[in-house]
Amino acid sequence: MRWLLIPWFCTGVASAALEFPEMLKEMHLAADQSSVSMDFTFKNTGDKTVKIKHYDAACSCLSAQARDGKLEYAPGEDGVIRTKFEMGNFAGVVDKKVVVWVDDDPDDKPSVVLTVRVHIPELVLVEPKTLKWAVDEKVGPKTIRITMAYDKPIKVLDLNCSSERFRHELKTIREGQEYELTVTPDETRTPGIGVLRIETDCPVPRHRIQQAFMVVRRAVGE
């Protein structure tokens, strides 16, 4: 009996699905690039026709389409799924998935999950992004460092805080290159939040505005 089951198992695997040489495609983008396309090639290495039921990218920033809209692939036939990623306001390393269901894949178990990984330069680095004070902590200043990572100077033009509770002061370390932003809460007796909007003259619009957060919060478990 067991000798009968093994060929059945192996046959099933061989004809299971489409074979993709690369499940992850990675690309480093220019700062001002607005979109990028990546192709995932595949081949039906099985012994029966495979039908792509549907595919989905969980973000409107990413579209995917089989070449020529072709959805059925005979044994030995190859194809391409072309993806197009729109940068939007992303920065840093971004992973996006394209999920492909073939034949009888259940909704919760797609056969193929492809990953598009893009490295988008961060031109204005804000570190840390959040300044935190614990409730009843001694009131004191904390500092955010703003560093420009571009081949031309980027200046901080304006700062705007959503809460009057936090006082802020900008210090230029190197004009167009590096700044220090010191923030001090008026008090820390009660929890509170603030959003600091940092406007720059960055020539790439999606990097122009940055945000930093200030939080006065109770320690966990209190």
Partner: peptide, 26 residues
């Protein structure tokens, strides 16, 4: 960033945040 700023009143005091998405494997 804007959405995080809008959600800050809920996020900042929380001990834990749990994120859910739609598609299997997304």
């Amino acid at each position: 960033d804007t959405m995080v700023a809008e959600a800050l009143p809920k996020l900042a005091p929380a001990e834990r945040v749990v994120v859910y998405c739609a598609t299997a494997g997304c």
